[in-house]
Amino acid sequence: MLQVVVLGMVAVSALAVVAARDPLRQAMVASIYGLVLGILFFVFAAPDVGLSQTVVGAVALPLMILLALAKVRGGEE
């Protein structure tokens, strides 16, 4: 039952990531999507993958997106 709920959350989050057209908003939604995927991996008895996905998808990836956006939006003097 828990697995069905988390799978539903994954499907909804993926749709939310694509539907957020502004990259700044999308970075935040991508962080949530990474966290939900990490929860999915923990529920599926995969702790190594869950740890990896949580750290990478919720922290490192949105960070790179934000840094690229900062350069593109505000880089020119």
Binding site: D48, L51, S52
Partner: peptide, 24 residues
């Protein structure tokens, strides 16, 4: 996490990203 990779969930990949987060 890096050093105990052979006993508990973890290893070089996860621990490496955590250490880079500390720099951030």
């Amino acid at each position: 996490v890096v050093v105990h990779g052979h006993q508990t969930p973890g290893g070089g990949f996860q621990g490496g990203v955590i250490l880079a987060t500390a720099l951030l």
